[in-house]
Write a protein that binds this DNA or RNA. Structure first.
Length: 150
DNA sequence: GCCAACGTTGGC
DNA sequence: GCCAACGTTGGC
């Protein structure tokens, strides 16, 4: 799951403990959000910084949550076409798990994996939420000094 | 700041 | 339904 650290960072999540992952307004990303289940682990990826990198880990504690910002006309994520009785945008609530002691930069991910096994590095990919194969996720986790703790 | 790659919008 | 124009994302 991507976020620009200027907007919402892993440190913000650490401070708050948990967050409702609002503002996703891309149907493909939303469909992935809908598939997420309580207990799922997610990497926190910082985009738009140098270097872009996976910086930590979080866990889904509530799934299929209606994103309240779609009905808030003051929110940048307001969607005037979404109906209260048929919300367009669902998301998840995630719990903070860990800030990685060493972040995993995009360049490293590009070196270790090919685009077929990691959606993140596929050309032109702009999804803010995407699935990751268990096997690949484990490999990424093994690059962090916490594999024994989880 | 640039720009490639997408996604969305809206006229037709 | 097509597609040009436009807006956004995000790496570099």
């Amino acid at each position: 799951m991507k976020s620009e650290p200027d907007v919402y960072s892993i440190d913000d999540l650490k401070k708050e403990g948990q967050t409702l992952w609002d503002g996703v307004r891309n149907y493909q990303a939303r469909n992935f959000l809908r598939q997420m289940k309580v207990g799922d682990l997610c990497f926190f990826y910082h985009s738009n910084l140098t270097p872009p990198a996976i910086v930590g880990l979080m866990k889904v504690i509530q799934s299929n949550v209606v994103d309240p910002t779609q009905f808030d006309s003051n929110s940048p994520y307001y969607d005037s076409k979404s109906k209260l009785d048929a919300p367009r945008w669902q998301t998840v609530i995630v719990d903070f798990v860990k800030v990685f002691p060493n972040m995993i930069p995009l360049t490293t991910l590009k070196q270790l994996f090919n685009p077929e096994e990691l959606l993140l590095i596929r050309k032109g990919n702009r999804l803010s939420v995407m699935p990751i194969e268990e096997k690949i996720a484990q490999k990424i986790l093994s690059l962090v000094d916490i594999s024994g703790e989880i």
